[in-house]
């Protein structure tokens, strides 16, 4: 073989150099434009530290006890809302997910279920809560309605994606036995989608609890409502206590749901 000096350059991710430069330029221009419109008031930011100190000194020390009953009440309400909304949401989601899986359902049903998911997902929980509070009045009923709808958007979509990615061989094998559509769902789809369905339900339970702490701020019940009341009354020490409790519970829930999901897999 003839000895030749050869050089090698790492191939670029985008092989077309023109496209590469246009893309890099585009990102640069975007960043400049976006940062330009940020409109940062630096003198205001500089004042931030003393302001933050004043703000946080109002929080200190957290007061867990003087409104202890209200806090406990709010927490329990959050818990009821979370459990009820997750259960209802999963119940509604399962048929929607089956309808929204391309490999299981006919096109019209698929499109209907997918648009249902898209609309439930598009609006943030807080926006949904504002409207449900308007419709159903203040309190946990609006909260349950909000969380149920949010659960459908989340759970049905992810479950439908899981159903779409099941093993084709297993589903073919059951169809080849002459099974009916429902039997096929039961024997080919259900065993494959089950672990994900349980894992997602645990995950959503966790998310719903966090969100229940937020949607209360706009009047949909739960610990968030207690938090809002504390802010309205300028009881920042109680508010600090509530925030700490929420963070603690979220961390504990996260730790636990991680373990449960691992056990189910």
């Amino acid at each position: 073989m003839a000895a030749k000096t050869q050089t090698w350059y790492r191939p670029h991710i985008i092989s077309n150099p023109a496209l590469r430069w246009v893309l890099a330029l585009g990102i640069g221009v975007y960043l400049a434009a976006a940062i330009g419109t940020l409109d940062i008031n630096w003198s205001r930011v500089a004042e931030g530290w003393p302001r933050a100190q004043r703000f946080f000194s109002g929080f200190m020390p957290p007061d867990f006890f003087s409104r202890g009953d209200a806090i406990l009440d709010g927490l329990l309400e959050s818990l009821w809302m979370t459990v009820a909304a997750t259960a209802l949401g999963v119940l509604i989601s399962v048929p929607v997910a089956i309808g929204g899986a391309r490999n299981v359902s006919p096109v019209p049903v698929y499109l209907f279920c997918r648009s249902l998911m898209a609309v439930s997902r598009a609006f943030h929980e807080v926006l949904l809560a504002i409207f449900f509070v308007k419709l159903f009045g203040f309190g946990p009923f609006a909260g349950v309605a909000t969380l149920t709808m949010a659960t459908v958007g989340f759970y049905a979509k992810l479950l439908a994606e899981d159903i779409e990615s099941i093993s084709v061989a297993q589903s073919e094998a059951i169809r080849a036995t002459g099974a009916g559509w429902l039997q096929w769902l039961d024997y080919a789809i259900r065993p494959q989608a089950r672990p994900r369905a349980i894992g997602l339900a645990m995950y959503r339970l966790d998310i719903n609890f966090r969100e229940s702490a937020i949607i209360g701020i706009v009047g949909a019940g739960g610990i968030g409502a207690t938090l809002n009341t504390a802010f309205d009354r300028y009881e920042f020490d109680t508010a600090a206590a509530i925030l700490l409790i929420i963070i603690g519970i979220v961390m504990a829930a996260e730790y636990m749901s991680g373990h449960i999901r691992k056990a189910v897999q």
Partner: peptide
């Protein structure tokens, strides 16, 4: 990681509006 995840972005925004002032920067 855990602390960042446990605080909802709305709560973060609430705190940051007090610190850096209202506006897009607090949102970012």
């Amino acid at each position: 990681i855990a602390a960042s995840r446990s605080i909802n972005s709305l709560i973060w925004a609430l705190l940051l509006v007090v610190i850096v002032g209202p506006g897009v920067f607090a949102g970012v």
